[in-house]
Design a protein around this nucleic acid. Sequence first.
DNA 1: CTTCAAAGTAACCAACCAGTGCGTTATGCA
DNA 2: TGCATAACGCACTGGTTGGTTACTTTGAAG
Lengths: 210, 210
Amino acid sequence: MPGARPKTRDADATRARILAAAKEEFARLGLGGARVDEIAEKAQANKRMIYHYFGSKENLFRIVLEEAWLDIRNAEQELELDHLPPEAALETLVRFTWNYYLDNPEFITLVNSANLHRGRHLEGSERLRTASRRFVNMVRDILDRGVAAGVFRPGIDPVQLNITIAAIGYYYLTNRHTGAILFERDFMTPQALAERLAFNIETVMRLVRA
Amino acid sequence: MPGARPKTRDADATRARILAAAKEEFARLGLGGARVDEIAEKAQANKRMIYHYFGSKENLFRIVLEEAWLDIRNAEQELELDHLPPEAALETLVRFTWNYYLDNPEFITLVNSANLHRGRHLEGSERLRTASRRFVNMVRDILDRGVAAGVFRPGIDPVQLNITIAAIGYYYLTNRHTGAILFERDFMTPQALAERLAFNIETVMRLVRA
DNA sequence: CTTCAAAGTAACCAACCAGTGCGTTATGCA
DNA sequence: TGCATAACGCACTGGTTGGTTACTTTGAAG
C-alpha cells in the first residue's frame, strides 16, 4: 500500500506514491483496465498530479514498466554469482528467479501487459538494454566457467538458457489460475511450490550438465 | 477474418461469425480492451445479436475461452501418441505444442487474459476438465511406457512435465516483444524459431531420460 | 396465404473515463 | 517581507461504452 499523504508538500514523495499505486493498478487490471482516477485515489494524490508528473497514462505505464525491470536486473546483480562455483551459481539463479516472481507477483502481470501491447512501451530504453547486456554476460560467464571445469557441456546459448529459466517459473505462476482448474490441483500450497522449484532446478541442471 | 454476411438469415452462421470476431478482438486487446461495437462490426452483425446469443460481454469471453481450450485438447488427441514409441511420442508432443502456439497466436493471449482475471471465466467447465484429464493420462501413459522400456527415469509427475513443455514454448512466444528489446535479437526469424524448438526438445529429452 | 417466433436493426441512455482549464496554496530564495 | 515557482485541487468536457428499448423483416409450419 502506498503510504499516507505527508503533512507538508513533497514532490518526490507524491511522485513515488503515484508510481507505487500505478504499479499496483496496472498489474491488477492491465493498461486498458486500470483507471487514472483510481490510481490518483490510491496514491492519495489528485489526478491532476499524475498528468503534472507523467504527462499521460501511457507514459506512466512506460515508467512503471521500466522501473519494474530495472529492479529485477539490479537484484540479480546483487547475487554476485561470479563468486560462486558454476553449478551453485546456476542453481542460485534458478532459485532467485522463482522467489523473485513469488515475492513480486505484480512483475509478471506487468510483463504480460507490456507484451500484449507488443513491447511498445519499452522501446528505446537504453538503461534497460545496458542492464540486460550485463545480465547475459553474467550467465555466459557461469556457463564458460562450468565448461572449463568440465561440469557443463559446451555450446549452450546463454540467452536460450535465460529464457528457459524464466519460462519454467513464470508460466507456472502466471497460469496458475487456469492451471488449477484444468489440472484440478492447488498450485500455491507450500508443498506444491516446493515441488515445482525442485522440478525446475532438476530441469536446468540436466539441461546444462556435461 | 470472419466471412461475409450470407444473403439469407442463418442463426448458426451469425453466432459463429460473432465468436470468431470476438476471439480476434479479445486476443488482440484483452477483455477490458476489446469493444463490443467493434466485435459486432467485424462479425458483420448487429451489436444486439451479441446480447441475443451471448447475454453479456463477459459470457461471450467465457465461451471464446472454453472453445479455444477445447480446440487444443482435441488437436492433441488427434496426434495418437499412444501409437508411437515413448521417445518419439514425447518429441512429437513438444513439436506439436510449439507449432500450435505458432499457428494459433490468439490462444496465448486469450490464456493470458483469462489468468489476468484469475481464471474466473473458466470455472465450472466440466467439458474442459474431462478433456484435460484425458490429456494428462495420455502423457502419463507415455512416461510409463518409457520407464518400462528403460529409456525414461521413473517418478516424473506428468502434470509438471506438461507445464514445462508448455512453458518453454509459451514464454518464448508471449514475451517475444519485450525479449527482442532486452536481448537485442529478433525472436521470430525462421532460424531463431528453429533454434528455439531444437533447444526445447533437448531440454525435455534431457529431463526425462534415464 | 396466414401466422408467429426468431432474426435482425437503429437509435438511444446512463455511466464512465482520459484529459484539461483555471484557480489556490505552500515553499524556497532574494 | 515579497515574489516567483512549483505543488496541488475542483469541476468540467467531449467522446466512448456496455447494455437496452422498441421496432421491422424473414422464413417456415399448418
